[in-house]
């Protein structure tokens, strides 16, 4: 079927519905979304609208109640390195506080010197503990550790919300540069419209459990 539509290699959410408990209201209802390699899809909407939930479902952190998430036409792998990786809003929660940064960085793959330089990670930081680095510095590590060659899609859940604007711009410029180079597909969850317009190739908005397209964004 993939070859028929000519889409092939893509991250696809098909007719996804989700709610946390039976009695609760639906958070997502019949949502479909495709992210192509090299494409950066922005996802905006008011807080509590299900942006983060959709991000988690696409990254395989939550199972949808209805519908499925497909990567190249088949379900996301349950074991082994997942080609869809997620970066979180709070980097300090995404790293083990008892590990040195070096170990954290190399958990999934061994990044080369060049990438560390690109991401603005200083050598000296590798010997430190997570509590000795700022949020912006930690987020650089969280990004670098998932930029391995096996990663094909990045789900970014408000990754620069807690950072100052200079760090935000620095990190995004680097991520965009590397994403272009590796032709990563990205889903960018943010409430900052100006940021979405600068970063994404197209922008979607969640309203009443379903997606609508918004004009804007830059060309890939």
């Amino acid at each position: 079927m993939q070859s028929e539509t000519g889409k092939g290699m893509a991250l696809e959410a098909r007719h996804i519905s989700f709610r946390y408990r039976k009695q609760k209201d639906w958070i997502l209802k019949d949502v479909s979304l495709t992210v192509e390699p090299g494409e950066r899809v922005g996802l905006t909407g008011p807080s509590g609208c299900g942006k983060s939930t959709l991000a988690k479902i696409l990254a395989g952190y939550e199972e949808p109640l209805e519908g499925e998430v497909l990567l190249d036409g088949s379900l996301l792998p349950k074991k082994g390195y997942c080609p869809v990786q997620m970066i979180y809003q709070h980097p300090e929660q995404a790293v083990n506080p008892r590990w040195r940064m070096e170990k954290i960085l190399c958990e999934g793959w061994i990044p080369d010197e060049k990438l560390l330089e690109d991401m603005g990670i200083e050598r000296e930081w590798l010997r430190r503990w997570p509590s000795e680095l700022s949020g912006g510095e930690l987020q650089r590590f969280c990004i670098a550790r998932v930029l391995g060659p096996r990663t094909r899609f990045l789900i970014c859940d408000e990754i620069s919300t807690m950072l100052d604007v200079i760090t935000q711009a620095q990190i995004w410029q680097k991520v965009l540069e590397l994403a272009r180079k590796q032709r990563l597909g990205m889903l960018v969850v943010t409430h900052n419209m100006a940021l979405a317009e600068k970063v994404c190739t197209r922008i979607l908005s969640i309203h009443d459990c379903s997606l609508t397209s918004i004009n804007g964004g830059i060309a890939g």
């Binding site: 990254a59 395989g60 952190y61 074991k79 082994g80 390195y81 997942c82 990786q85 997620m86 979180y88 709070h90 929660q93 995404a94 790293v95 083990n96 958990e107 999934g108 550790r145 998932v146």
Partner: peptide, 13 residues
Amino acid sequence: SSQYVLAAYKMGK
């Protein structure tokens, strides 16, 4: 259920 453990599984651990 911490994020770093969930992330570790996704990194193939």
